[in-house]
Each structure stands twice: as C-alpha cells, then as structure tokens.
Design a protein around this nucleic acid. Structure first.
Lengths: 324, 324
DNA sequence: GTGAAAGCGCTAACAC
DNA sequence: GTGTTAGCGCTTTCAC
C-alpha cells in the first residue's frame, strides 16, 4: 500500500506539502506541485479514505436508505437512485446503501460517522423515522413530503399538483366522472407520502371543478386488469382515468386498447415506461432522475452550509406524449 | 461525539478493555463486561467507523458496481441487490454503491481502502474490467460468467442450463420450430454474459434435439409486441417460445392471450413478475434474490479466508407456475 | 513557500 | 483478566 509518506519521499518534500498539493489549501510553487503530482501518478497513490476521514472529520459519503419494501415501483426507485448517484459522483461523494429499513440504520450510520449526510426515500405521511432524524444533527434530505418534517429538507415531485393537473385536463375533455387508479393497497395503507398527496390533489380538484372523482388502489401485476375492470363494471359512467402505477400500466394499456368503450386515460409515469404504450390521451412525466439529482444537490448544498429552500417540489407538466 | 475513552472512563476501565468487550477477542470478567456494556448503552456509544478501519485495516464495506446501463431489467437488478444487501447486513457489512461504470471506479475504491471487497454486476463475455480486477488483490466476485475470469469468483444463475431446459420442454411438447425472445438489442451487442449463455444453451439443445431454434432480440417496451409479431409473421411455423424479457412480458403476454394461434410460451423470469400473466405453459424462475445472496455469501466467505468453489451457478427448474 | 509534529479514535501487540 | 502504548495514514495547526 502506498502512503502519503511514500509520495513525499519520492517527491523530496514533506508529507504536509503533499497533503496541501492535493487539497489546494495552500499556495504551492509550480515546481513543487509538479514534482508531487508526478510522484502521485507514478506511484498510483490514492489516499486512504478512512485515514482521511478520521483526520478531517468528514467522509464524503452520503447514506441512502432506499426502499426494498413491497409495492413501490422499482423502476422509479432505480431512476431516482441513478440521479442521486450521478450527482453525488460529480461532486466526489460516494453513496452508502443503508441495509436497514428503520430509524436504527440511520442512527447507526450517523453515530458511527459512516456518513456526512443522510438521504431517506419512501417517506410516509406520518413517518416514524422523522422524529429520530430531527434530533440527529446530521444533515438530512427526505425524498417525500411528510407532516412534521421540522427543518429536514424535503425534495420530491409535486404529486398533489400532478393530481390537480390531471383532473383539470380530464374535466376539460368533457368528463364528469373520473377515477384515479394508483398505488397498490399496501402502499396506500402505509400512507406513503406521494400516494396521499396525489389522491388529495386529484380529489380536491375534482370537487372544485364540480366533477365526480374517485381513487382506487391498483395491484402492480397482471391482476391490475381485473381490478380496473371491476371498478369500471360497477360504475360504467367513469370515462376519464388517471393511471399511476408503472408496473400495471403495460397490462392495463394492452387491455384498454382492446376495449370497445372509449375512455380517456392519462398516465403518470416516467416517460421511458410509457414508450409504445397505446391508448393514452397524454402523459404527465414523473421526472425520476431529476428528483434524485435535486435531492443530491440539496444535500450537497446543505453540506456546504448553503441555506436553501427547505422544501423543493418539482412541478408537473404534460409531456404531450399521447401514444398511438 | 462520544468516544471509546468516554466509555472507558464511565465504566472505570481502560480503553483496550472496552475495545475487547466489543470485539470479544479477549476473555472479560462478567462484572467488567456488564459495566462496559451498560456504559456503552447509556452513552449511546457507536465506534467511529473510520478510526476503526484505519486501525484494523478493514472497512466492513463491500463495493458494489450495479449497472445503470440501458437494457438491463431494473426489477431483476433490484432483486439481486436486495439479496446482496440482506446477506451483507446479516454479516455486518455495508454496501458502497460505486458511482462509476468502469474499471476506474473499482480501482479507486480498492486503492483508497474504501472497501474490503468488490462485487461487479452486468458482466460481459469479454469484459474490459476483468483484466484490471485480476491484478487488484482485492477479493472480487462477479455476478456473471465471463471468459478469462482467472481466479475471480463468479456467481450467477445457470442461464445456459435454463436455455437447454426450455428447449427440451418445448421439444417434449411436440414443437419442432422454436424461438427465444430475449434481451433487447443493446444488451446483446454488449455480449452481456447472461444473454450469451442463454442463447448458447438454447441453440445447442435445439440442435441436439433435432429441432429448429432461433433467437431474437426483443425491445423492453411496448414495442416488443410488434417485434414478436414481425418474427412470427415471417415464420408462422414457430409454435414454441421461450420468453426472457421481464419488462416486455406484460405487453406480449396480453397480446398472446388475444391471439388465435395456439402457441406454447415458457417464461424465464422472477416468479413475482409473472404473477397473473396469462397464457404461459410454464415458468423457469430466475432466482434473483438468491443470486445476490449467493454472491454475498461467496465474497464474505472469501474475506474469511475460506476456499470455496470458484464458480457457482444456481440451477434452473420449472416452477410449475403455468398461469391461467 | 515549506516542514515538524500534534492529534483524529481506534486496534492489537506487549506488558503484568 | 486488565492496562499501557505504539501505531494506522491522514489533516492541520504552529513555526520558520
């Protein structure tokens, strides 16, 4: 293993000089800098991460608690994580995947100085982790928007606005009886933040618009077809649909295409997943990668001591992607 | 921040005693142990991870390079990662998500002592990372089976055997013209390990069985329907199908169900994803979680100095899940 | 513009 | 069964 002492010896300088060349916290003569840098390159030196964080009291690692729970759409999760990872990498931060779903995992990572900051996904409206996080002093960003977040930073897509937007569009298309098919039952039962907000926005807008709206859980499998049919059979007056379940969409879309009745379906989904899906009036994009990137930027900003907005919600818009 | 010295003072012992209580590497009197443990609990002490790894020369972190590349099925990836994470957590290891797709990311993590071991996914048959990994001296496990792995540990599902198994089943069902619809074109073009092996097993078995087999790329979107139709239109004699594209399956299955022609379709997929999908003769399970867990066990074993088998391939079998 | 040296919080000899 | 202490490889004062 090559250490800073090896580099210093090879360059004929002291170890502190090597350190300062790397950090740029001191002015170094052109000559010295070049000798040190070529020694680093020649020896393939890479500083020992633990030694560095012990001395500098910072790890350049962000702890990420990503959901491996039932019901959440893995594709969306992965896109968000990809956004986080890319933004973190570009700023020389690594991501530590926390291997526990509860508050303990977060506390341990923070207490053991494993991470500089925490990022928590799959937030519920009344999330039990929040109380713990608030008294942790470790900078934290939630991807979601729970109640009682205190001054924890929150970043997410504005699902409430998306619900309103969809309702308005359906109303404008002339529908007076509309339905939202959304997350599977287990996600709703947990009061997952995004589902709660989507429902709220959709129903509130329906009421304001004077149309009848309803929300329904939707399984994330082929069973979705039967679930949707059951609802539509019972209330055939439903002609406008907002569909927010990425995994179920392919099943249902293929079904709808073969359906005689003429209904308007709006999808709420990352664009990539609706590609080629037939029978949609339009799509509201869930900008998953951008959510992750925004969350990462927020936490990096906080680590730099920036005081930014505490809540950042990405605004919805129609993509115009009305397939086939 | 509470340190080991605080605990030692509170318990009235030396810091080494505290350390030994935690590691169990020394016999401690019942009395002392209790005093130390209650001091730890009372102070909510958690050892500084970097200090520990600097002194112990091990991080208890496994670096994971997971693919964020085009074409790979995120659902399968996530399940594998979940398997890795669970197994790692149960053995007190954390997972560092490497934020770069290339060999450099691996080298940096290893050189900087950020990780004790590396796990690499999305392996290509002739993977450019392998040469680098082989001379790295950091224990490494590949999820895949490339050529020239040297003594790098390889863990994966036996896709070649799965291809054979499916061909045999289709032949037994009386089909003489069979097709494999598999990964999207970009995955095949990279010569991704699993796709190459699946194709090889399928075609080899067909030849041995004296039936005609062909393999076809399949887009992972709704476009899959058209792609499949194009092939079947051109060669209507194809009556047996092996389908290995989780994202496309819902689209195609719904389509097949409405298809007049009677074809037998075998799916190769995690069981969860075929739930409720109609029209399948049978399913060969891709045990994604188990792949991840096996990979984790392999790397943990290697870190303990165990000498296990260098290649471990999980064997395929039919699940009997012939839906609807 | 550069060096020397005191820690950072822990582990693991080495003592008794 | 327990304590003392020399590092682990860095960052960052302090000194010149």
């Amino acid at each position: 293993m090559v250490t800073i002492a090896d580099v210093a010896a090879a360059a004929g300088v002291s170890i502190s000089t090597v350190s300062y060349v790397m950090s740029g916290k001191r002015t170094i003569s052109q000559d010295t800098r070049e000798r040190v840098e070529s020694a680093i390159a020649k020896l393939e030196y890479s500083p020992h991460a633990s030694a560095r964080s012990l001395a500098s009291r910072s790890t350049n690692v962000i702890g990420l608690q990503a959901p491996l729970r039932a019901g959440v759409d893995v594709h969306v999760i992965m896109e968000i994580v990809a956004g986080v990872v890319k933004e973190a990498r570009d700023n020389h931060y690594d991501i530590l995947l926390l291997t526990s779903d509860d508050a303990d995992g977060l506390v341990n990572a923070a207490r053991g100085s494993r991470v500089d900051a925490l990022m928590v996904m799959d937030i519920e409206s009344e999330d039990p982790r929040i109380a713990t996080l608030r008294e942790l002093s470790t900078p934290t960003v939630l991807i979601g928007l729970p109640s009682g977040a205190g001054d924890l930073i929150c970043v997410d897509f504005d699902f409430e606005a998306a619900g309103r937007l969809a309702a308005e569009r359906l109303a404008a298309l002339g529908h007076t009886r509309v339905a939202l098919f959304g997350a599977p039952a287990e996600v709703l039962e947990r009061h997952t933040s995004y589902a709660v907000r989507l429902n709220r926005g959709f129903l509130a807008a329906c009421e304001e618009l004077g149309i009848t709206g309803s929300v329904h859980a939707c399984p994330s499998s082929a069973d979705a077809v039967d679930a949707v049919d059951a609802v539509l059979d019972e209330d055939a007056a439903i002609t406008g649909i907002l569909f927010h379940n990425e995994a179920a969409l392919p099943h249902v879309a293929a079904h709808v295409r073969n359906d005689a009745t003429k209904r308007d379906v709006i999808a709420l989904s990352p664009l990539q997943l609706v590609h080629g899906v037939a029978g949609l009036v339009d799509t509201i994009e869930v900008p998953a990668t951008e959510i992750g990137a925004a969350a990462a930027r927020a936490i990096l900003g906080a680590l730099e001591g920036e005081t930014t907005e505490r809540v950042r919600l990405l605004q919805p818009r129609f993509s115009g992607a009305s397939a086939v």
